[in-house]
């Protein structure tokens, strides 16, 4: 075999493997997207239609306006399969985003303040405080589920954004502090010292010099906090009761595990839920990949 032919074969092999992996990764998402544009009657045919034969936006229309999709009227008997919960998806999306954005902002501000002190200042109890933060993450979520419920209940925060935000902060802040501390430490200290000599306070140094320099780390930490909060399910399930505060994973779970669930409406709900995290993953791809590596690698 000539070396040119061998190279060609090798390239072909690589591309073939890529196509297989791409298919495994993307096909499930594409299939739910495809399903969301099919009517209930079409989804209940066998074999499945790989492409919608009567593409419809009726499912999304129902979620946003409550107009019963045509595909349900046609068969009549399927009326019971209309999933009422799907109507709550827009509100749940709003709840999810409000909670996740609040958690992200709190992480960026509180996390950066604490991380900078850990990175640059000397004070008694520093190691203890830091180890305490990291150690708190050794508790598996399920072990503290009941006490969290009791605390949030006692504070009268059940079914509120605040309750969810507090719990999400407990899980994300230790990570953010530790992650940002390492980022701050990696910056050259001379610029900060020059600013201090010029009369800047620590707070000014942090906001004017350190944060702009550590922006990629801050973006990654913020993205992680957002995604954790947006994706979190167990505590959202325990601490929310009504659509006043229920987040998307809770509503999706109730849509999907309802034995009478409409497949078409479930698919459309899932597609809506996928939009923010996918935009995040695409937009912050570089930051996330680098952040992930740093996060796992430095443990």
């Amino acid at each position: 075999m000539t070396s040119a032919r061998r190279k060609l074969l090798q390239k072909g092999g690589l591309w073939a493997a890529t196509v297989v992996v791409l298919f495994f990764v993307l096909a499930p998402m594409l299939w739910i997207l495809d399903s969301s544009f099919q009517g209930e009657n079409e989804l209940l045919t066998r074999p499945s239609h790989l492409l919608p034969q009567q593409p419809t936006v009726g499912n999304f229309d129902y979620i946003f306006t409550g107009a019963i999709p045509r595909s349900f009227e046609v068969t009549g008997t399927l009326r019971s399969r209309i999933s009422q919960e799907a109507r709550e998806v827009p509100q749940a999306l709003e709840n999810s985003i409000i909670v996740a954005v609040a958690v992200t902002i709190a992480n960026a501000v509180l996390g950066a303040l604490a991380a900078y002190s850990f990175a640059r200042l000397r004070f008694a109890g520093k190691t203890l405080a830091f180890n305490f933060l990291l150690g708190s993450r050794l508790l598996p979520a399920i072990a503290v589920a009941i006490p969290y419920y009791a605390i949030i209940n006692a504070a009268n925060l059940l079914d509120t954004y605040t309750g969810l935000i507090l719990v999400d902060l407990t899980f994300t802040l230790p990570f953010t502090v530790w992650f940002l501390r390492d980022h701050f430490r990696a910056l050259p200290e001379e610029i900060e010292e020059a600013a201090l000599i010029d009369g800047c306070g620590r707070l000014q140094v942090l906001f004017r010099i350190v944060l702009p320099l550590a922006a990629p780390g801050l973006v990654a930490a913020g993205a992680f906090a957002f995604m954790f909060s947006y994706n979190e399910f167990l505590f959202a399930l325990l601490l929310t009761q009504t659509i006043k505060s229920q987040t998307l994973p809770v509503i999706l779970a109730s849509v999907a595990t309802n034995p009478d669930a409409s497949l078409a409406l479930t698919a459309a709900s899932v597609v809506l839920a996928m939009v923010p995290p996918l935009l995040f993953a695409l937009g912050f791809q570089r930051f996330l990949a680098r952040g992930l590596v740093a996060a796992l690698g430095r443990t």
Partner: peptide, 9 residues
Amino acid sequence: LPWALPPVV
């Protein structure tokens, strides 16, 4: 991409 999605999804 799959990693970014909620496990529920």
